Amino acid sequence: MNAFLAELATKLMDRWLTALVAPGMLWVAVLVATTRLGQDAPFAFERLSAWLDRLARYPAVHAPVVVMLLAVAVVLVGGAVGLLVGALGGLVERCWALPGDLPPAAWLLKARRRRWDRATLRLRTAVLGAVERGADGADTRRADTLVLRRQRQRVRLGQGRPVRPTRIGDRYARTAERVRQVNGFDDLALVWPRLWTVLPDSLRAEITVARDGTSDAARLFGWGALYLVLSAWWWPAAPLGVAVLAVATVRARSTTENLADLIETAVDLHSADLSARLGLPAASSPAAAGHAITARLSPR
Rank of each mutant, 00 (worst) to 15 (best):
E7I: 08
L8Y: 07
L8F: 04
T10H: 08
M13W: 15
R15Y: 03
A19N: 13
P23A: 05
L26K: 13
W27S: 11
A33C: 08
T35F: 05
R36Y: 03
P42Q: 12
S49M: 12
R54M: 08
Y58R: 13
V66F: 13
V67D: 13
G79K: 03
G79C: 02
L83I: 12
L83D: 06
G90H: 08
R94T: 15
L102Q: 15
A106Y: 00
A111N: 10
R113W: 01
R118V: 01
L123R: 03
R124V: 10
A130N: 05
E132Q: 11
R133W: 06
A135G: 15
R142P: 10
L146W: 07
L157G: 09
G158A: 02
G160D: 15
P165Y: 12
P165I: 10
R167G: 06
I168P: 05
G169M: 14
G169D: 07
R171G: 02
R174E: 15
A176Y: 11
R178S: 04
V182W: 10
F185W: 14
L188S: 08
L188G: 09
R194T: 12
D201Y: 10
R204H: 02
R204K: 01
T208D: 11
V209R: 15
V209W: 06
A210S: 12
R211S: 15
D212V: 09
S215W: 06
L220C: 13
W223E: 09
Y227G: 02
Y227V: 07
L230D: 00
S231L: 07
S231I: 04
W233F: 15
P239C: 00
L240D: 14
A248I: 00
A252I: 08
S254R: 12
T255R: 10
E257Y: 05
N258E: 13
L259N: 07
L262W: 00
I263Q: 07
I263F: 08
E264V: 02
T265I: 03
V267H: 05
L269W: 10
D273H: 13
D273W: 06
S275L: 14
R277M: 09
P281N: 00
A282H: 11
A288E: 13
T294A: 03
P299N: 03
P299Y: 04
